[in-house]
């Protein structure tokens, strides 16, 4: 049936007029009218008469595809924006110059924080930090927890927190020792002069 149906369409396209009834029927049948359109299109293409025709369907599809494309929510930072920020920072920094030394030294130290936390965690295993129990005065940090406690997780968290606190203190102590020269060296100008013969 369907074969003969398309045959009718084909005949129609080729200009063999079967009868009005058959034509009417063909145009009313969705499938057949589409086939009609396609055959006409093929014919047009063969006769090189397409022009704007092809755009119709494909451009619709492209438009659809574009509409379906997910939106990328990562706009590139505009050049002018970052420049404005930089300019502001410079403006900010200039009036202070080197005056706010403590702040700048602190700022220096802040920059390294993230890497340093990660680094210390991998760099110094917990066991390395030995504790010595001491009679009476202090509760030593214990590395051996009683695991039967149900709040073991909480204990572990507190322990990690404690390790972090001590690590931070040891690191800061080292840093401050280096920076003491900042406030102490100018107090001995005669020594400084003696060591800079240039």
């Amino acid at each position: 049936m369907s074969e003969s149906k398309f045959e009718t369409v084909s005949s129609l396209v080729d200009g063999y007029k079967i009868n009005d009834e058959a034509f009417e029927q063909t145009m009313n049948d969705g499938e057949m009218s589409e086939a009609w359109n396609n055959y006409q299109l093929i014919g047009d293409v063969l006769r090189d008469e397409v022009k704007g025709l092809i755009t119709d369907d494909i451009s619709n599809q492209i438009a659809q595809a574009i509409a379906d494309e997910p939106t990328v929510l990562a706009p590139k930072p505009s050049e002018s924006f970052s420049q404005a920020v930089k300019a502001k920072v410079v403006k900010f920094a200039k009036p202070f110059g080197q005056m706010a030394i403590a702040a700048s030294a602190a700022g220096l130290m802040v920059i390294g924080v993230q890497q340093n936390v990660a680094q210390n965690e991998t760099f110094i295993p917990n066991q390395v930090l030995k504790t010595t129990p001491l009679g009476g005065i202090a509760e030593p940090v214990s590395l051996n927890f009683q695991s039967q406690n149900s709040d073991r997780n909480a204990q572990e968290k507190a322990f990690a927190e404690q390790q972090r606190r001590f690590q931070a203190l040891l690191h800061d102590h080292e840093q401050q020792i280096k920076l003491t020269a900042l406030v102490n060296t100018p107090k001995q100008p005669e020594k400084k002069a003696e060591e800079t013969p240039k």
């Binding site: 220096l108 920059i111 390294g112 890497q115 280096k178 020269a181 900042l182 060296t185």
Partner: peptide, 18 residues
């Protein structure tokens, strides 16, 4: 009398120190 510290955590800096 210039001492420079080069460390992974911080940008390098110098201070006056003997």
């Amino acid at each position: 009398n210039i001492v420079s510290y080069i460390e992974p955590e911080l940008p390098p800096y110098s201070i006056f120190s003997n």
